[in-house]
Structures are given as structure tokens and as C-alpha cells.
């Protein structure tokens, strides 16, 4: 167990290093020059050059990258070009809001996915199954900004059940979390359905029925835990999906998280913030996968042996 953990942490550091390198190079290649952006339209070439020197942008790329890495190791993500604040301060201030949104989003997708997946599996081939699968297909295919606007129009603007945007109460989180969770819920419903159909055909389910157990107990005690095994690994991978969704959802609902921070930074070519948010997301994805790997043996005794 300790060896696995060490190995995975070593791998995580390598992945983060790779993400940092690739993002750095991509941002360097951007046609937009942050110095020009900062100096404003009327600035002289001299001013732009000064700003560039000040930010260290006049250095060759490898030197810039090494400097960034050196700071990163000390926990310094750099200063924002526009907000003149430490990037880690900005991210830490906004991280809780994003984590709340993500946790609620995962809750929505897992609950919806499980409920509809199980219902579809138990009604396999019937009308309910087809209806659920059609719905999940819509959920999977709909772009998130469309879902967000649709929800806003129906539930906020027309029905007035929820606020249009903002942060602070339970009511505020419901629409963004649902928007975020709908896509995943569609996937989960499909996965849970096929996993359940598979598991319900297993010999041990027949054994459970032969014991005289009630159908409820057969499904929830014997079939579901086995059907959940592949889903758990999926949740880890899902966090990556979520990070991209968060940017859109936070922008539409005015949710003060790091997605919105990234959204603004991209518009202003604020490279330190973009780098910081990218690395935070990468860290979240790596952590998510690690947690999934650590949880799997708790659920499946067969993995524990290895």
C-alpha cells in the first residue's frame, strides 16, 4: 500500500511537470502578447518593452520556464499581471466555491445516474428503459452552455424558483450543480444500466435468488455493489471532465470560483493565473484518480490481495 502510494505520488509529480511544460509552451506561442495587452492601446514601443522586461518576458523560453519551475517548487505561482496579487492567494480565495460546486455536481450526477441506470436496467427493453436512455442521450449530447441557458430561462426567469446567479445559499447552487451534473448523469445512467444488466445475469445473483431473498435485497445487497465497481474508477476520471465544465458553468451563473477566474484571465492573457488554474485542475484530476484507486480496494476485496 505504501509502495503504491509512493509510486502514484511520484507519477503525479511527473504528470504535473508535464502539464506545466506543455501549458507554458502553448501560452508562449499565443499570438496575443500580454505586455501589449497590459500597456494598453496608446502605449509606446518603449513602454511595452519595459513591461516585457519587468515581467521577464524578454528572457528566452527555457530560462522563463526554469524560473517558473524554481518558484513553483517553493510554492510560488507568480503574480497576476492584471490584479497585482499573488496567484495562489487568488486561487485559494476562490477554490472553496468551486469545490462546493463540484461536490454538488458529482452528487447530482451520481444520484441521477444511479437511479435512472438502475430503473432502466430493471425495465430492460421496455418503455421506461427506452425513455431513460433517450433522456440520457440528450443529457450527454447537450452542450453545457445550452443546458445552463435553458435552465436559467425555465427555472430562474420564467418559474422564478431559483436565483439567476450568485453565491451563498443552497438555492444558488442547485441550478449550476445540476447543469454540471447532467452530462455526467447521462454517462452514468448508461454505465450503471449496462453494469447492472451484466451483474444481474451473474451466477451469484441466481444464488441469491435461490436463497429466497427478496428482489430488493438481491438488487441492492448483491447486484449493486458489484455494478458500482467500474463506476468508482469513472468518478476519478470525471473530475477532469468537471474542470472544463466548471469554466462554462461558473461564467454563465456568475459563480465566484476558479473557473470564472480562469475565464477572465484568458480574456486578459494573464498567463500566471492561467498557469495556476491549469496546474490546480491537473492536481485535482490526479488526486481524483488516486482517491478512486485507493477507494476501489475498499469496495472490491479482490483488488486488496494485490
Amino acid at each position: 500500500m505504501a509502495e503504491l502510494l509512493l509510486r502514484r505520488i511520484g507519477g503525479a509529480i511527473l504528470i504535473l511537470f508535464g502539464v506545466a511544460a506543455v501549458t507554458f509552451v502553448l501560452l508562449y506561442w499565443l499570438p496575443a502578447d500580454p505586455a501589449v495587452q497590459l500597456a494598453g492601446r496608446s502605449a509606446t514601443a518603449q513602454t511595452v518593452a519595459n513591461i516585457r522586461r519587468e515581467l521577464g518576458l524578454d528572457q528566452p523560453l527555457p530560462i522563463q520556464f526554469l524560473t517558473y519551475l524554481g518558484n513553483l517548487i517553493q510554492g510560488d505561482l507568480g503574480r497576476s499581471y492584471t490584479q497585482k496579487t499573488e496567484v495562489e492567494t487568488l486561487i485559494l480565495a476562490r477554490l472553496p466555491a468551486t469545490l462546493i460546486l463540484m461536490a454538488c455536481g458529482i452528487l447530482v450526477e451520481v444520484v441521477l445516474g444511479l437511479v435512472f441506470g438502475i430503473i432502466a436496467a430493471l425495465n430492460r427493453g421496455g418503455f421506461v428503459d427506452r425513455a431513460v436512455m433517450t433522456m440520457s442521450f440528450v443529457g450527454v449530447s447537450a452542450p453545457q452552455f445550452v443546458v445552463a441557458l435553458f435552465f436559467l430561462y425555465i427555472f430562474a426567469a420564467t418559474l422564478g424558483w431559483f436565483p439567476m446567479s450568485g453565491f451563498g445559499t443552497v438555492n444558488h447552487v442547485i441550478l449550476p450543480a445540476t447543469t454540471l451534473g447532467v452530462l455526467g448523469a447521462g454517462w452514468y445512467a448508461r454505465m450503471v444500466r449496462s453494469a447492472m444488466i451484466d451483474v444481474l445475469a451473474q451466477d451469484y445473483v441466481r444464488t441469491a435468488r435461490a436463497k429466497g431473498l427478496s428482489e430488493t435485497r438481491v438488487i441492492f445487497r448483491h447486484a449493486l455493489p458489484n455494478a458500482l465497481l467500474p463506476i468508482i474508477a469513472m468518478i476519478g476520471i470525471d473530475i477532469g471532465q468537471f474542470m472544463s465544465g466548471v469554466v462554462v458553468v461558473e461564467a454563465v451563473y456568475g459563480w465566484p470560483g476558479i473557473g470564472q477566474l480562469a475565464w477572465q484571465a484568458i480574456q486578459q492573457v494573464d498567463i500566471p493565473i492561467i498557469m495556476g488554474v491549469t496546474l490546480t485542475s491537473a492536481l485535482a484530476i490526479v488526486t481524483g484518480n488516486l482517491v478512486a484507486d485507493l477507494v476501489a480496494p475498499l469496495v472490491d476485496p479482490r483488488i486488496r490481495a494485490r
Binding site: 451473474q202 451466477d203 451469484y204 441466481r206 444464488t207 441469491a208 435468488r209 435461490a210 436463497k211 429466497g212 431473498l213 427478496s214 445487497r221 448483491h222 455493489p225 458489484n226 465497481l229 469496495v299 472490491d300 476485496p301 479482490r302
Partner: peptide
């Protein structure tokens, strides 16, 4: 259900897959 497992019990061909792997 009371008959099943109570009055009439059954065992199957595949002992490797007939027991629930996570219980």
C-alpha cells in the same frame, strides 16, 4: 421465496462464480 432456500435449496455448476465476490 420462503420455499426457495428454505424447503428446496439449490447448488450450481460453477462454484467459482456462484458466490458473491464482494461479500
Amino acid at each position: 421465496r420462503q420455499v426457495r432456500g428454505g424447503d428446496v435449496a439449490m447448488i450450481f455448476q460453477e462454484p467459482m462464480t456462484s458466490l458473491n465476490p464482494v461479500i
